[in-house]
Design a protein around this nucleic acid. Structure first.
Lengths: 356, 356
DNA sequence: CGGGGTTGTCGAATCGATTCGACCTTCACG
DNA sequence: CGTGAAGGTCGAATCGATTCGACAACCCCG
């Protein structure tokens, strides 16, 4: 046990104690390079005796030019992001993808820099960055990273720069789902969208709101639905959650006289909420109301097998991670477009005519 | 647009271009220190022209001795950890707590170091660390951090060292919940615990399993329940999830002839699963079965108002973050013990006697 | 016995920024 | 007009480790 004031031993101290040069001591730790077993043992012993905990990552990263850290930029606060199972799956995929790097994951938010000394995207010791989602600040983030020379990959985010983009066919997938509903005979269809603008405005889909929408995912999925049901009304949710879906569902289903026979939700959580609202109101799913989701996650506690567009969230993350590994190896990394598949569950059926 | 091979400009380059010394340029960026407005403007202009993106965090952190990063050690892989709402809330609290630091959050797992160059707890450029949960590797992690001289805080983890510990009254809280059940008249009580050992063995609570248990939280809550119902049988779950609770519930409720009138679950997710199992089997909650949870989270999709022991997860995280802020400021930080409160919902009632 | 090759070790330069103390200018006040 | 203070700038040392090229010792084989 050493006193608190004692400065922590450095590699040089260890080298001195072991009677070798700092270079040799470094070699002994990093493993690479020719060092005799005897010397290595001596260095390691000296290190133990001095209570040396291994090379300081700061010095190492300065010299090596690599920090061994990959940044993940979330478009919202941590809590909000991790409430979304899709994001968690994606994050998990990233972890898998960058595993060969042995790098850590640094959580960053692009909420425009708090204090002066804050570690934001402007100044984080990261080797590469994954941008998740498409906030209005995405362009800014990309610009900063370009200046810093840090490779980046975007998941579901359009960028001007030539950074690889991992995406799915949001528009076509939704269109396919919508077409399926039309084939079943639905014509009275309503939509529940993800937040469309940066303010996460909750409310009816107005022309104005749609025009000013800034989030590509919601916009694309909306376009896909509109390609089949051009005049569908709908509601924008403030987040992707069961709670929001429940609220939207209550609003859309409130009026028995003027009720859609099908609802297209832009996420499974929203869909689950809609179903819950239907149950509250005594509306049978799928007999009286068909519900289509998006994501293909397992919603804990949902009794139905949701009809939904299954997207490979984990694979998306993994692809992003792999792209980063390639970029860090100096190889080019291409964009990857995944394809969602329509899963037919038990929440969709032909519309039920109460008055034939 | 510069060629790829061109080395990124450094502070020295900027200084040269602005016609000042490197020291002055540094002052201009860091803000602290006397620099004339004219000079500062000249430096900033030069930086812009050169495409300089600000001081390199690596050099800065080496010199300053601070990286502006706080590590969070999770006891399992990222996916698993973030499936648990309590952990997410805690993480969010930590974010709040360390906000004044403007530090980033680095995710680490203590799964015993992967490759050689991996950024684990052994070599991560962090200023401080929050240890979440009590894995068997906790002692090792703490030892490494002590050697590295990195301040740490443990959430729900007993350590020998004198690091601050943020905890709740797991044992007493559970005991209070159990006493409440006893007061209601229950005597046939079963338990569903969190994983007890590192292997996350799923199965009946045997004396052997209980003796070898390594996770303090589960053990403490178990002891609290046992203080009231010494002979209660039970099942250990492999994780805190609705799925696991469902499975445990099915097993415990399978035999109509020998069925508990109350189940104490060690987490709300497990409790929700148990309730779901009861519904499947046509057992009315709370009339035929009382269910007690732990955590006080809002379980999305659960129709009941769970009777549970509400713990302040966010506050726990915040306290940990604040402790870290204090420690980094050189002040002492004390352990904090939070207290859970028993929330009386609609999932508990006096036992229902089918044969009076 | 000597030359070529291998192996192990060392010195010194380098990564990029920060900071302390010294130095010079300028201004205000006695 | 002189002098002390304040403000602004600079040099040089420093943070801790890595790496390149040089060098010494040693071995094998002709």
């Amino acid at each position: 046990m050493q006193t608190d004031s004692a400065p922590r031993p450095t590699l040089a101290d260890v080298a001195a104690k072991a009677g070798v040069s700092a270079s040799t001591a470094s070699l002994a730790f990093s493993g690479s390079g020719p060092v005799s077993d005897a010397t290595k043992a001596r260095v390691l012993t000296a290190a133990t005796e001095l209570g040396y905990a291994g090379p300081d990552p700061r010095g190492r990263s300065l010299r090596r030019g690599r920090s061994g850290i990959v940044g993940v930029v979330l478009e919202e606060r941590v809590r909000a992001a991790f409430l979304d199972p899709v994001k968690i799956q994606t994050l998990d995929g990233i972890t898998e993808g960058i595993a060969p790097l042995g790098a850590g994951l640094l959580l960053l938010t692009d909420t425009g820099e708090a204090g002066g000394q804050a570690v934001g995207i402007e100044s984080a010791p990261v080797d590469a960055v994954v941008l998740i989602g498409c906030s209005p600040r995405l362009a800014h983030s990309v610009e900063v990273l370009r200046r810093r020379g840090i490779p980046a990959v975007a998941i579901e985010g359009k960028t001007d720069e030539d950074i690889p983009e991992i995406s799915i066919d949001n528009r076509n997938a939704t269109r396919r789902g919508a077409e399926y509903l039309r084939e079943l005979g639905h014509t009275q269809v309503s939509l529940v969208t993800l937040p469309l603008d940066a303010e996460r405005t909750r409310g009816p889909l107005t022309a104005e709101l749609e025009r000013d929408s800034t989030t590509a995912v919601a916009t694309e999925r909306l376009a896909g639905a509109r390609a089949v049901f051009p005049d569908a009304t709908g509601l924008a949710a403030a987040a992707s959650s069961i709670e929001e879906g429940l609220e939207a569902g209550r609003a859309l289903l409130a009026d028995p006289a003027n009720r859609p026979t099908a609802i297209i939700a832009q996420s499974d959580l929203l869909a689950a909420g809609v179903i819950q609202a239907a149950e509250e109101l005594g509306i049978a799913v799928p007999r009286e109301l068909s519900v289509l989701g998006f994501d293909g996650i397992r919603v804990d506690g949902l009794q139905h097998d949701l009809t939904t567009l299954v997207q490979p969230s984990v694979a998306k993350g993994r692809a992003a991670g792999e792209a980063i590994v390639r970029m860090l190896a100096g190889e080019p990394a291409a964009s990857v477009a995944f394809v969602s598949t329509l899963h037919l569950g038990d929440t969709t059926a032909p519309p039920h005519r109460s008055t034939p």
